[in-house]
Design a protein around this nucleic acid. Structure first.
Lengths: 248, 248
DNA sequence: TGATTAGTGCGCATTTGTGCGTATTTGCGT
DNA sequence: ACGCAAATACGCACAAATGCGCACTAATCA
């Protein structure tokens, strides 16, 4: 087996299961733990997965705190995320001006977005912008400083550009979703962009899988009531009854 | 069996299987591993497959480790371009604010840029920005609408951002270089960005191989005297004596 | 016919990838 | 706060893969 293939397999396994341990990978691929660790290191550097103590997790699950263990591992299903994205994408109306936040969940969303001629998509992520442009969407990118880890744009230029726009609707990811602490993210600068972009959007949607409920990341960017949450899977009972939570 | 046929067979095999090893190919085609390696090298340069350690994979699968380095070796002016870029990159001084125009020549330039801590690079190309960020440079992206073909940002947002900046030096590509018609490019919107960015830059450099001299594209973005040209190869005699032309 | 050139195989030095042992760090329970 | 077990990083050895120079062959052309 080619080393390259092994790397691809690891990525698929991580994506599908949400998280995998080093021994699991070593066993499945017939190589030693040392090799797996080296592979995880390369993949982490390439931003394909997130390396954590004990193994690896998919990127979206990694950012709650900078270092989480494999201890809690609710195997999140790809199906959930697909359904969430499909539901969210259906909310985009013709003739509208739509904001797309950076992050891996919203990246998945792009695949489901309608191909309406009259819609303009605005994003703070160069990666998302490329995907939108490739699919033939009318795409606008915020300016600003490029953060290498997330490929997101931050800083005064990004905020200044946002101040000139008003969106019909927008979609955000969130590392933490909690009734009291609201929507939270690990990065201060990115939080600022999220906050300002939300302020300029009429219909605000946070797309998030069930595992984010109850999680709290360092920086808050919106109150829990500020957006409608589109989610799927085993949402804690406390949140199920709330009228701004849509479970698909 | 013709060498050309062998190359085609390799491509089909890679496409079909996703990935193959060198011994597999050598065995299947009845040639030695050396020949296969040479073939893979050829096919990789032609961007028909991706050569990896131990064999080859199809291009779609290749994005795991595939570096962001540009390998346009098929280019005839390769040596020239390398020399031009090396010379241009040496012009970047510490503590400076540098503008990098979009285009394939400037993309090549990025590989040669010095890793000075204090330098900030600003670009209108999301592709260039990614390359800069990957290399650990402090990178700023103009906002604006993303043109899918060139991955360049254009429109009022790009221009508005430029109006807030003043660069120490900047590097532009140009489709046409002529004494009378100046620097020219095919796209109106990109010409605008080039024009305004030049207006905000103290030391302006156009990097261009010899083949562009005498060419004229539809839209002019600067006078011939507005920038110093860094070039190489067989520059027409008329231009060689000009004091804003540096031949390396 | 003789010279030239592209393509191929082979040997060798170098680079790259892998596994293993050991020292160090990390996480977790007491 | 502390200690223990697991996980990790690091250095080393070995094997595989690679790149390069050289020799040989076949086709092309003067």
């Amino acid at each position: 087996m080619l080393a390259e293939d092994r790397l691809n397999t690891i990525v698929s396994m991580v994506q599908q299961a949400g998280s995998v341990t080093v021994p699991e990978l070593a066993d499945a691929l017939g190589v030693t733990a040392s090799t797996i660790r080296r592979d995880l290191q390369t993949l982490d550097r390439a931003h394909r997965i997130a390396k954590v103590h004990g193994g690896a997790t998919s990127l979206e699950r990694a950012h709650v705190t900078r270092d989480l263990t494999i201890s809690e591992r609710s195997d999140l299903h790809n199906d959930d995320k697909e359904r969430i994205c499909a539901r969210a994408a259906a909310l985009v109306e013709p003739e509208s001006f739509v904001y797309i936040d950076s992050g891996s969940t919203t990246l998945r969303l792009i695949e489901h977005l309608p191909h309406l001629e009259s819609v303009t998509y605005v994003t703070d992520s160069v990666l998302h912008a490329q995907h939108l442009a490739v699919r033939g969407m009318r795409t606008v990118v915020l300016g600003g400083e490029l953060k290498p880890e997330t490929e997101a744009l931050v800083g005064p230029d990004a905020l200044a550009t946002l101040d000139r726009y008003n969106f019909n609707c927008g979609f955000w990811g969130s590392n933490g979703v909690a009734a009291e602490q609201g929507f939270t993210t690990p990065d201060i600068e990115e939080a600022q962009v999220k906050r300002i972009s939300m302020r300029h959007t009429a219909k605000r949607f946070v797309i998030s899988d069930a595992s984010k409920f109850g999680m709290v990341a360092p920086v808050k960017f919106a109150d829990f009531r500020d957006a409608t949450i589109i989610t799927a899977g085993e949402v804690p009972a406390k949140y199920q009854s709330m009228d701004n939570v849509i479970t698909v």
